[in-house]
């Protein structure tokens, strides 16, 4: 990360990352709206809109799950402020996804929606994921974090369950969905990184690498120090 953005100070770097996150997260929604506006959603625009809100939701959720391992294993602490917006944008896409399903696809037809909810196992799974996301979105503020203390972390472990349900939902909705397996693989990999027997050796390895790099750097800094003071 530091080699990618060598000339920027910490604040500028943080701002750039934040802007890129907001822009990147909103891009799929903007493109969807553009394609809708100019009738470019194909023969079945409803399905297209549902897919094109569901997939970004899943990708943003997975991205929010990559922040923690990148911080702890790669040391990219500057990514920390991105986790919350990524999670909230995932929730936004889920809301739009659900709104299109209920309002446009099922035309607010309560009887059919109920049938859709009860007899569509993939909808049950997806809807459960949505319900579990609500408390996470509601308690995403700093104030909630302070108020809940240790329980905040416990509560937000739910995001793993949401990830599993979201991929399950994606896997089940089509006749054959190979693409969902790719996301399942990514989620499984992210889980592995959090698994202690794998995480600890990785952490130890990283610390050893850091120490080796830090020692010569530290001695060099010590040598330069007096000159800098002149």
């Amino acid at each position: 990360m530091n080699t990618l953005l060598p000339k920027l100070d910490r604040h500028a770097q943080a701002r750039l990352l934040r802007i890129a996150t907001h822009a990147g997260a909103l891009l799929p929604l903007a493109l969807l709206f553009y394609d809708f506006w100019y009738y470019r959603l194909g023969a079945d625009p409803v399905r297209e809109a549902i897919l094109r809100t569901g997939k970004p939701a899943l990708i943003l959720l997975l991205l929010s799950l990559t922040i923690t391992p990148l911080m702890s294993l790669a040391g990219w602490k500057q990514l920390q402020p991105l986790r919350r917006p990524l999670g909230l944008y995932a929730f936004l896409y889920v809301c739009v996804h659900l709104a299109i399903f209920v309002g446009v696809d099922y035309e607010l037809n309560l009887r059919l929606i109920l049938d859709g909810l009860v007899n569509n196992p993939y909808v049950v799974v997806g809807f459960t994921a949505f319900l579990l996301l609500i408390p996470l979105a509601v308690t995403s503020t700093k104030a909630s974090m302070r108020r809940l203390g240790k329980n905040w972390k416990r509560l937000h472990k739910l995001v793993y369950a949401v990830g599993v349900l979201a991929i399950w939902h994606f896997l089940w909705l089509a006749k054959d969905n190979g693409e969902a397996l790719i996301y399942a693989g990514i989620l499984a990999f992210l889980f592995l990184l959090r698994f202690q027997p794998i995480r600890q050796p990785l952490m130890r390895w990283r610390r050893a690498l850091q120490n080796r790099r830090r020692r010569p750097a530290a001695s060099k800094r010590a040598a330069i120090q007096p000159e800098a003071e002149l």
């Binding site: 079945d44 696809d105 196992p121």
Partner: peptide, 20 residues
């Protein structure tokens, strides 16, 4: 008779909308 993973009670008639 539903598909094991989804309901067959209604369908989306392309260009029109949801139909039973």
């Amino acid at each position: 008779v539903d598909h094991p993973r989804w309901s067959q009670a209604s369908e989306r008639l392309i260009g029109v909308g949801r139909q039973e």
